[in-house]
Simulated assay, not measured.
Amino acid sequence: MNEDQIKRLLIEADATAAEPGFSPMTGAGIRSQLRRKRLVRVAVPTTAAAAVTVAAALAALWAASMRTGSPPPQPQRIASPEEQVRQLQMQTETTLKLVRDVLEKDWRERHLASLEAELASIPDPLKEIGRQVDKTAFILVYQADKLYKELNQTESAVRAYKEVIQLFPTNQWADVARERLSQIEQRQINQSGKGVSKCEPRNV
């Protein structure tokens, strides 16, 4: 390539190249750029000072924990959903166990109270036997009274009274039977006495 060709290429390049564009600079733009520069100059030292302060505080905490032997405070960890589910399950199982224990205790107490009430409703065997003996002795005395007072069967009545005394000597109706026998004997004595008194004048 000769010199003429080089010149021609330079002329064509100058013709096709666009003029450099410069945006006009206003007063507001200049003030904005100056303000940003001032903020940068202020913010950089402030940020650096804050970083140094935080680092110093962390170093102090670490040194204090090393002196006391306790680990530095750890940030509180948020439980995962799986851990929350496990915790809820454990709380539920504990609550259910407590409910079961309370229900079982209540059932035992009610069952014991029911047994005590059932035992209390059962009559005392000795008292029941005493009532039956008393009832039997009363029936025998009643039958003997009927033989003596209504049917005028004194001998049968005497045997019945003696049977009551023999079978139930300590019963209250045995005392009644003794009283009846005493009355019968007294009546017989009175009747025999009256018979003797009637015969005595004849012998005289």
Rank of each mutant, 00 (worst) to 15 (best):
A56D: 01
E93S: 08
T68Q: 11
T95C: 02
K105S: 11
E83F: 03
T53D: 03
W107P: 00
V85C: 01
A43E: 07
A64M: 10
Q74S: 12
Q91F: 06
A48N: 04
W62P: 00
E93Y: 03
T47G: 11
V102L: 09
D106Y: 03
R77N: 04
E82K: 10
A48F: 11
R110E: 08
E82R: 10
R67Y: 08
E82S: 12
A56F: 12
D101F: 04
V54W: 07
T53S: 11
E82A: 15
R86E: 14
Q89A: 15
K105Q: 12
L103W: 01
Q89D: 12
Q87F: 01
E109F: 03
P81G: 03
M90W: 02
P45W: 02
L58G: 15
A60N: 05
M66I: 07
Q89N: 11
P72H: 03
H111G: 06
E93W: 03
T94G: 07
A43S: 13
V52G: 13
S80A: 14
R77D: 02
A56Q: 02
S80K: 01
T68A: 13
T92G: 05
A63W: 13
T94L: 05
R67C: 04
Q76N: 05
Q87S: 04
D101C: 01
Q89W: 03
R110G: 00
S65D: 14
A57M: 13
R77L: 11
L103I: 04
D106M: 10
P72Q: 08
Q84A: 04
G69P: 00
A57F: 11
L61M: 14
P75Q: 13
P75I: 14
T92Y: 10
A63N: 10
D106V: 12
D106Q: 12
L58M: 13
E104N: 08
P73R: 11
E83W: 04
S80M: 07
W107K: 12
P71D: 14
R67N: 07
T53I: 13
K105A: 14
P75D: 13
P75K: 04
L103V: 05
E83H: 01
I78L: 13
S80F: 02
E104Y: 06
A43T: 09
T94F: 02
A79D: 13
D101P: 00
P81T: 04
T68C: 08
A59P: 00
T46Y: 05
K105V: 06
E109N: 06
T95Y: 06
Q87H: 02
M90I: 10
L61N: 12
A55L: 15
A43P: 00
A56R: 01
D106I: 11
E82T: 08
P81S: 09
L96K: 03
V102N: 08
T47D: 02
E82G: 10
A50G: 14
E104T: 02
Q87L: 06
S70M: 07
T47C: 11
P72A: 15
P73E: 11
S70Y: 06
K97S: 12
E82M: 09
A79K: 09
P72D: 08
Q87D: 06
R67T: 11
A64I: 10
L98R: 08
P45M: 05
M66S: 15
E93R: 15
D101W: 06
P75E: 15
E109P: 00
K105I: 06
P45I: 01
R67S: 09
L58K: 04
E83M: 05
A57H: 03
A51Q: 03
Q84F: 01
